[in-house]
Simulated assay, not measured.
Amino acid sequence: MSKAFTRESDAADDDDPQLPSLPTGGKNYITPQGYARLRAELLDLIDNERPKVVDIVHWAASNGDRSENGDYLYGKKRLREIDRRIRFLTKRLEIAEVTDPSVHHGSDQVFFGATVTYVDQAGVERTITILGIDEADSLQGQVSWIAPIARALLKSREGDVVKLVTPLGAEEVEVLAVRYPAPAAS
């Protein structure tokens, strides 16, 4: 029998993506804004995206032969992707520990949610914001709180020199400034 006529297993598509690992005994810290973004995405998938795709698949299935029906095949694939993302978001939101960084506003010590400006031994100045695993975006200067630079900076204060271990060896960085978002007005 030719390989072209064998049914491929959908098992690989149904595997849950591996969640980024947390430190042993660690928590999944997230800011209120990050939690709100993930929750909004989950609700949009459930309330808007999934019903639209279900309608397309239902319509395509009613057209007869499903084996050569692109709308049906791609719709089913998209439905699996949506369901996988819904499961992922549900699991992440269940274990999320919402932490508001604005409670540290005015502090010069580095905690979760801080925006830290530091300088390395080469004199290069960088600014990063320490956020949760699910909300950090390196293109925006955001790093996960479990990243090596974040772990080195946590609990340090402005003016401290901390040791950062990199694949190229240990390096010292000096904390220049620590900022937190202002508390929301109630």
Rank of each mutant, 00 (worst) to 15 (best):
R78L: 11
R37W: 03
T31W: 01
S107W: 00
D108Y: 05
A96D: 01
T31K: 02
G26L: 10
A36Q: 15
H105S: 07
E81W: 01
R50N: 07
G25D: 10
E97P: 01
S62D: 05
F111S: 08
Y29G: 01
D16Y: 10
Y29D: 12
D83C: 07
Q33P: 10
T90V: 10
G64Q: 02
E49M: 09
R37F: 13
R87D: 13
D108K: 12
L89N: 09
N69G: 01
G70E: 12
G106L: 04
F88W: 13
G75V: 00
Q18L: 12
D71I: 00
R66W: 00
L22D: 07
P51R: 09
S67V: 10
E94F: 08
R66K: 15
S102I: 03
V54M: 02
G25E: 07
Y29E: 06
W59K: 08
A60H: 03
N28Y: 07
P20M: 05
F88N: 05
G70Y: 10
E49S: 13
D108P: 02
G75I: 01
R85D: 04
A96Y: 01
D47N: 15
K91Y: 10
I30L: 07
D65T: 02
R92M: 11
L42Q: 07
H58R: 14
P17R: 14
V103R: 11
D83G: 05
K91W: 02
L38D: 04
R66L: 09
L45I: 06
S67F: 07
Y35D: 05
D44A: 09
L43W: 06
K77Y: 11
G26R: 04
L19D: 15
L79N: 10
R84S: 14
Y72D: 00
T31Q: 02
E94I: 05
